[in-house]
Design a protein around this nucleic acid. Structure first.
Lengths: 185, 185
DNA sequence: AGGTTTCTTGAGGGCCATTCAAGACATGAG
DNA sequence: CTCATGTCTTGAATGGCCCTCAAGAAACCT
């Protein structure tokens, strides 16, 4: 009993598959979430997924875009808070997705498409962080290195969990170092 | 034509398999290096590997121990150089292994044994870095956060390559921030 | 000589992502 | 009212993967 419609709810079905994939990628991890599981959760067969997505990496990228768009929308609502709060917010926001950080790094090595997404993501993140640091009065020459350190520490905290006090200590020290703007040779 | 000896060269054969696995893990990546490929490169069949190692993760751990022992031996020869040089050395030394950093993080999520190895590795690395920072006159209370930042930046540089100038800038800024010992509340 | 331990192997099971050919539906043209 | 066409869905199969099982061969011991 196949059901079919002309042009309309193609997006809806795509979204259903995407929602199932997102939940399984986050809860079970990319590797453990098989295409069969995703299909079952979306109420379709495996092959139907391949009608909407080229392969599993394409599905991953669509999930990442979905999550990124959502995060950016929420980020806009707290854009006027101080840098430290901003970083802690990003950390809490992303903590549930810590498995995906590794997944992106791993798949980027095998899939050019994921690699491209990863590159674009870091360009975006670097821009945001660099703007913050500029406003905080950081020396322009140090901005690239500073943003790199900021990004690496965030990623490190995501992939190496510790308690709240530990997180706060790292963030506080990082922000203090980055915004004290040490004049160097 | 199976060949067999009593007790002796069990270690030798194990080493041959380990050498093949190490080369393939580094050159092709953990996922791309199939047990079949490893076996072929070691001149055995797949099942023989399972006589010496419990599973593929066990093989990975043995390779990691091998590499870590080798690195520690070389590290002892430069233990008296300044911190910045030390970090750059570690970076160059580990850069060829950048794929394994991700592999460890990924497999740690699925394999308790790899997770334990990862925990132990970071305890060791933190001890080394903390000793360095203590000697450089860092405030004792800030040591945990400082070592975390140092480790995260190293891992970040390993998994997000940039040119030599970029690496040097990040390392210089990091060392400057960590050794300037900012007094904080 | 026969038994035991150590090592090696062929064959196969179960899971995976992906592909192929064919079917089912809704529409547009004749 | 047909029927060809494009859109969607599926069952079945392919080839790869990690890993296991049962059986065999080589050295040792008694």
């Amino acid at each position: 009993m196949p059901r079919n419609r002309r042009p309309q709810d193609r997006e809806e079905k795509r979204e259903e598959i995407l929602a199932a994939a997102q939940r399984l990628f986050i809860d079970d991890g990319y590797e453990s979430a098989s295409m069969g599981q995703i299909a079952k959760n979306a109420g379709v067969t495996v092959n139907t997924i391949y009608w909407y997505f080229r392969d599993k990496d394409d599905l991953l990228i669509a999930v990442l875009d979905r999550l990124l768009a959502e995060a950016l929308a929420q980020y806009a609502t707290i854009a006027d808070r101080p840098l430290g709060d901003r970083l802690l917010w990003a950390l809490d926001r992303l903590e549930r997705l810590h498995g995906l950080v590794n997944t992106v790094h791993t798949r980027a090595a095998a899939s050019p498409a994921v690699h491209a997404w990863h590159t674009g993501f870091h360009e975006l993140a670097d821009t945001l962080v660099a703007d913050d640091l500029r406003k905080a009065g950081a020396a322009e020459a140090d901005l690239p290195a500073m943003t790199a350190i900021g990004t690496f520490v965030i990623e490190g905290l995501l992939t190496h969990r510790r308690d709240d006090a530990g997180k706060r200590a790292v963030i506080d020290l990082l922000v203090h170092n980055l915004t004290t703007a040490p004049t160097r040779t």
